[in-house]
């Protein structure tokens, strides 16, 4: 019997879902609402200098990559099943679109982070 690749995708889905459940609301509030519209935090919290310094540190790189990549893999897995639920049965095309998209996003994020040097 061919071994299933499901555990890999399910682990990425689970990790992303857990990360989003634990800190997602706080992240959206900070990056999308509080900092751009200037309350609770200082307006330069997400300034170029601060964000550059953050993504120059290894801890920062790992955090940014974890958030972007795991969110994408989590969403890819659910959207893949969602399309099936709505009667899209082009299995290979849907997989390539969903997981391929998450893979592309992961590669772009990892490459950009590696190119940001101290």
């Amino acid at each position: 019997m061919k071994r299933s690749n499901e555990p890999i995708f399910w682990s990425l889905f689970g990790a992303g879902g857990m990360l989003a459940a634990l800190i997602g609301p706080a992240l959206v509030f900070i990056t999308g609402i509080a900092v751009p519209f200037g309350f609770v935090f200082s307006p330069d919290t997400m300034s170029y200098a601060h964000m550059l310094a953050f993504s120059q540190s290894w801890a920062g790189k790992v955090f940014v990559l974890a958030v972007i990549a795991l969110f994408l893999w989590h969403a890819a897995h659910r959207i893949h099943i969602l399309l099936h639920d709505f009667g899209v049965h082009a299995v290979t095309a849907v997989r390539v679109l969903c997981y391929g998209g998450a893979f592309a996003g992961t590669v772009i994020a990892a490459y950009t982070l590696l190119m940001i040097k101290a």
Partner: peptide
């Protein structure tokens, strides 16, 4: 399950920010 669409969109916004950075 539909929450995943918004999780993806938010990740894409952050990815754009990273590429711009």
């Amino acid at each position: 399950e539909v929450t995943a669409v918004f999780v993806a969109l938010y990740a894409i916004v952050l990815l754009f920010g990273l590429v711009r950075l």
